[in-house]
Design a binder for these strands. Structure first.
Lengths: 230, 230
DNA sequence: CGCTAACTTGACAAATGTCAAAACATGTGG
DNA sequence: CCACATGTTTTGACATTTGTCAAGTTAGCG
């Protein structure tokens, strides 16, 4: 009884994930049998760099960061996963050890989808395959942007770029940006030290492009930010 | 007559591409109807950054580089495609403008697979979908490695890393590496200026880890290279 | 040969990181 | 409401890394 109930809850949760929204309800229920819900506490590591993938994950609640480790703990955060998003699919398909580690930023609930569960479904439902293809393609595109930012742009350009992406709509000249996390987290995602990030913010403020108060950044002149990029 | 012949040739070429090796012969023939073979001359641009994707490409012969452009022509080469490899799948699925451009390094022959040709097939053959998933996953993995190299490693570490990947088998202490292209191309892939690349090779030579003669690098002490990474 | 392109070297400049200290914020218990 | 402890952010002085520019050098090739 308890088992059936829990399995139903999982099926319900799975159905709400965009990836599975078009999958036959019966198939979702069948898959739910193999899916576990994990609770990951703040600071806990979900998988380490070097671990062997056995499936992929969907974040239900909380926040999970994917990052490169480094000897002195000066990790570089690649991405912050938010509820509803999946992660680890590509590494599952490859079957190679994780090149990154994942850690909960706050207490989180995660679905663990084992490889068999999904590969079985893939054989039946080509639409799911297309959706996964689309999902992974988005990731790939983000990585390309990240790499471009990293190799073609200065620190100020990367910050300006981030502020532009946060614009409510293209063309707005003035708007507020609420940073999604502590400044050192944002800095790490931009591949900057917290010190450099702080200094860049200072310079942009001096030139009248933005105003900073805590985690809220008021963009005063979007056009000016755009010009920085060239 | 001519058309039929050409279409057969294309089907033949497609069958030899790993991606389509397990697809039903009839389906390959059907797809071949929509596929064109392009000839791209040395230096010619296949697609520009900002162009809209209409499909993806498979390189039959020659060499194609994918790179980020920059105002002063100081491009950053992301990847060099070799015969048999496909490229542009992920961007096709996304339908967003190309974030990179592609250029022929030498005269090349390319297959142009329009989006419809492949999406039709994907509905029929889930194995193909899985193969594409695997293919894109490899790309994604490579991008992650690239990004890690870019953000976590010094210039010398990136060069050492590249030399290790070129090792004939893990654990070999001494081996020769033939650079796949001119040094400034390799440097760009490592996100280095030619000058810095040259200096790094000099330093590694000084410390007795390698010997350089033209495009051939003799690794003398693989263990020593590994230690650089830490 | 002699020309062009590729590569190297040196002197220098710019960008970014490091370390340490100070300033600021935030929450807690008295 | 204060005082303290804790964690985050800013600032300054400095070191390091890497890029830039200009001038050589070398190497391939007609």
């Amino acid at each position: 009884m308890m088992m059936a109930k829990r399995s139903n809850d999982l099926a319900e949760a799975l159905r709400r994930v965009p990836l599975f929204s078009k999958v036959e309800p019966d198939d979702v229920v069948a898959m739910a049998e193999h899916v576990r819900e994990l609770h990951v506490e703040r600071g806990e590591i979900l998988f380490q760099k070097g671990d062997q993938p056995h499936g992929f994950y969907i974040l239900l609640e909380g926040r999970i960061t994917l990052a490169f480790p480094s000897e002195q703990g000066t990790e570089r955060i690649l991405e912050v996963i938010k509820p509803g998003e999946s992660f680890g699919e590509a590494l599952m398909f490859l079957g190679q050890p994780y090149p990154i580690f994942s850690q909960a930023g706050v207490d989180s609930r995660v679905l663990d989808i084992p490889e068999e569960a999904i590969t079985n479904l893939l054989d039946k439902d080509c639409r799911l395959a297309k959706r996964m293809l689309a999902g992974i393609s988005i990731r790939l595109h983000e990585l390309i942007s990240n790499l471009e930012a990293c190799s073609m742009r200065s620190s100020a350009q990367r910050v300006a770029c981030m502020l532009q992406h946060a614009a409510p709509s293209a063309g707005t000249q003035e708007y507020d940006v609420q940073l999604p996390a502590a400044k050192h987290i944002v800095a790490s995602q931009l591949n900057l030290t917290p010190e450099t990030f702080s200094r860049v913010l200072h310079v942009l403020t001096e030139s009248g492009l933005i105003e900073v108060s805590g985690r809220v950044i008021k963009v005063l002149n979007a056009e000016g930010l755009r010009k920085l990029q060239l």
